[in-house]
Design a protein around this nucleic acid. Structure first.
Lengths: 335, 335
DNA sequence: CTGTTAGCGCTTTCAT
DNA sequence: ATGAAAGCGCTAACAG
């Protein structure tokens, strides 16, 4: 039923070693053998057994990817990028959604460890240092995604979130806003606190008094934005900010829905709104949403490449790749 | 550096066989041994090597999942459901996005075959029968997701799309619409043609003349909806339908954006709009979107369970699980 | 209940 | 350039 390498060898009239060589170093085999073996492989429909290959050669053909929360379409993009690069290397991606749950994140890391994956990509939730060190001790390299590795102990591929926050705030100031609220959370998420920090820097550098308050949310999903929007609407008009920076587009879209329902508030007239990530839905929002774009696909590609290189050369030092943010202006912040 | 089973055996003062038994059938081992071995495992941080396990026992701890197009958040839900169920069995998911590309879909199926996955879940693009038969011949079971297996050759877990289409049309008729356009494509996608078929049935059963035209799109993404929306707007007012059924929410949201930009058309007043899937963004759209909900998470869970059962008992017959659609009424179709 | 051991399918020396 | 054979880490069959 299932074809093994020795069936191929038999049909081709060579030894299993030769078949293996055809598969792995065809240049060290006579063209004639390559030809015969290839034909036999086709004829029998042979597919090599990665478990055996991995066991013997000690090299896996999978890479694990754990994301914070797959409900954010931004991570789809990152995963897509990783898949693109992986496919080019014949590598498959083991995928886990931590769903902002520490135990689940650990579960996947454990699972991936026993799969002996080639490497791990992780858009982390909370403090994962201990888990990553354990992985490293067992010989598995990790690359952090969407988060800068401050201590430089691991490689990372991320956006310059501080610069992104600054960009957002500068844009609001330029378009005449003076009372800004940053909506997001939890602040243990590095991306969130960095984006806020960037906004703060820009507010301080503005050369004029800028109000910057924080409206915290529990998570980073649509419903968190909705809920925060209602809190803001509940205030008397004059105590409301005139612009909102949301920690991501999901929150921003939730905010927009809460604010604009029944025409209660005009965006951008009464309230400007800016998000993060530039997911496809940002442009399709009720009022097209200004956003700080992250190159998700490229982040994914780069992360995968980085982890492979790290495995290739284990003496290589951890390296931080940081991409610049890009401001995409749409109607939600129009002057 | 890396701990093997014999290191554990040595530390615990037992044989490797006993350690293996503790791992796989603890009830056949004396409690004392279980205790000693467990302690040794903890102490050494032993993690079992799945490649070796798989090679020897012939049983894999991964399941492959290939989706049509990961840009549709609906599939996130399905994948999440599959992950939930998989995690409960200590199984990890190999994930591939076919991105509506036949070659890519095949690439992932090949990759999964050489990984010798326990089974494959597939939200298919186009005709995959040949590939699935090849997988089956190599001993890998496949379950189709989000598509009914008409020939009953494979198991499937899906929504009753025909009923969904009917539900959508009936709702429009009830709320007074008479000139409906179905917007979607490509029609080779079974989900699309089924949804249209359902709408057609409802139109014919209405007991009054109902116009049903088709506005074809190339794909199922936001931009396809946008583009179709512009085509519709380009027509003279009286040649426009008074309601649209979109083949999925992405198209619906694209349509909404195109139609409502600059207040060109009022939804639902001048044009009712209904989508499919009920993704989180449907409720958050400019005008909250009426949609036919699919229980994505449950579909994923069921699909995973089905494929595991099929592996467990290879003599079991293919089985079709069909979930009923649910109409979720929001403002976009308000009377 | 425990220990010994064959062997899963492959890659990789080492001879030839 | 090719073949023979060892052995990766584990499970399961068997003997005790």
């Amino acid at each position: 039923m299932v074809v093994r390498i020795r069936d191929v060898a038999q049909l081709a009239g060579v030894s299993v070693g030769t078949v293996s060589n055809v598969l792995n170093r065809p240049d060290e085999v006579s063209p004639e053998s390559v030809e015969r073996v290839s034909r036999a492989i086709d004829e029998l429909g042979y597919v090599r057994n990665d478990a055996a290959r991995q066991l013997r050669a000690g090299i896996s053909t999978t890479v694990g990817f754990v994301v914070l929360n797959s409900q954010n379409p931004f991570y789809n993009d990152v995963v897509r990028g990783a898949q693109d690069e992986a496919a080019a290397h014949g590598i498959a991606i083991l995928y886990g959604d931590a769903d902002e749950d520490f135990a689940r994140q650990k579960l996947y890391l454990d699972l991936f460890q026993q799969q002996q994956v080639r490497g791990v990509l992780l858009a982390p939730y909370g403090d994962v240092l201990a888990d990553l060190r354990r992985l490293r001790r067992s010989g598995i390299a990790t690359v952090l995604v969407d988060r800068f590795s401050a201590d430089s102990e691991f490689s990372s591929v991320s956006l310059d979130s501080v610069a992104g926050g600054r960009l957002a705030m500068e844009h609001l100031i330029e378009t005449g806003r003076r009372r800004v609220a940053f909506v997001g959370g939890p602040f243990q998420l590095r991306q969130v606190s960095d984006r806020l920090a960037g906004a703060r820097v820009a507010a301080e550098d503005a050369g004029m008094p800028i109000d910057l308050e924080v409206v915290p949310t529990e998570g980073m999903l649509l419903e968190d934005g909705l809920e925060a929007g209602e809190r803001i609407l509940a205030r008397p008009k004059r105590q409301r900010p005139d612009a909102l920076i949301a920690a991501n587009d999901l929150i921003a879209i939730g905010l927009m829905q809460a604010l604009t329902v029944d025409g209660r508030l005009l965006v951008p007239h009464e309230m400007a709104l800016i998000g993060f990530d530039d997911i496809p839905f940002a442009a399709a929002a009720a009022v097209p949403l200004t956003s700080i774009r992250q190159p998700g696909r490229q982040i994914g590609r780069t992360a995968l490449r980085t982890v492979l290189e790290e495995v290739e050369d284990p003496t290589s030092l951890p390296r931080q790749t940081v991409f610049p943010p890009e401001l995409v202006v749409r109607r939600s912040t129009a002057g």
